[in-house]
Simulated scan of single mutants.
Amino acid sequence: MSKTKTPFSQSIARTGFKAGAAFAGSVAIGVALALLLGGGLFFVYVGRLNGPGMAGARAGGAGALLALLTSPAVLVAVLLVAFVPLYVMLGVAQGRRRALRHVVAAHGDSLSERLSAAIAGRIEAMPRAHGALERAGEALSANALADQLAPALGTSRAVRRIIAFVVKRLPLSDLLRQWRAQRETSVPAEAGREDPALRAMLHQQVGDALRDMAMPSHTLLWIALGAHAMLFGVGLWLTR
């Protein structure tokens, strides 16, 4: 049987083109940083290994090899070259975040409504026996929710990553404790029926998680740039 695409899933597919462009742009920036900054500073530093302060390395032969192997300068060189793949990985990670932000920015409200309703429906369908609610987290896997919502949201990787991010960030145990506390002071809903209090809490928490995802973050990149500059400075001091 062929799956009929809903207008919402088609809209997400169109948004995917912009998300893909954002991903490609971030990866390109990561590759550029790897080649120009990572590779550039590495070769500049390697050129200094035969400079001042490395008299043993200029001696030639086994003495030069021993001097390099026992020198902290070699460790600095190894760490500097490790920044080349690190910048590529940061570019890929940033690209994924930017791609997901495009989807969230365009469809965040609809995603929040559908995902919170799906989670609430699974919890409401659970038996109310003691201890059953504590096992709700085991029944709410990202894959199961993605499969359930596939007819409405589609099966794109971006949607599955968003669902996985929300499920990982969702404090289910705290939400269930709050829900139990509210149910003790109100008329409890029957099993399998919609509980407005639960759905309101889930809608708020899912919305908060999606907003956090949509917030731009360059923290890891700035940390990498700072560490790279510090390491290069240490290398310059070692080869002065």
Rank of each mutant, 00 (worst) to 15 (best):
T4D: 14
I12H: 07
A13K: 13
A19H: 02
A21V: 15
I29R: 05
I29G: 08
G30T: 01
L36V: 15
L37I: 13
L37S: 08
L41H: 03
F43C: 05
F43G: 04
G63Q: 05
A67I: 00
P72T: 04
P72Y: 03
L75D: 07
L75G: 13
A77F: 03
L79I: 13
V81C: 12
A82S: 15
F83P: 00
G95K: 03
R96S: 13
V104S: 05
A106D: 14
H107N: 01
D109R: 10
R114E: 10
A117L: 08
A118S: 13
A118C: 04
R122M: 12
E124F: 01
A125Q: 11
E134H: 09
E134G: 12
E134F: 05
R135W: 05
E138L: 14
A139R: 11
L140E: 10
A142C: 09
A146E: 06
A146M: 06
L153P: 00
G154D: 12
G154Q: 08
T155L: 03
T155E: 15
A164W: 02
V166W: 09
V166N: 09
K168E: 15
Q178P: 02
E184T: 04
T185Q: 12
T185D: 08
E190S: 12
E194L: 11
L198K: 05
L202V: 07
D208Q: 09
A209F: 04
M213Y: 03
T219H: 05
W222R: 13
I223R: 06
H228Q: 09
G233K: 05
W237Q: 12
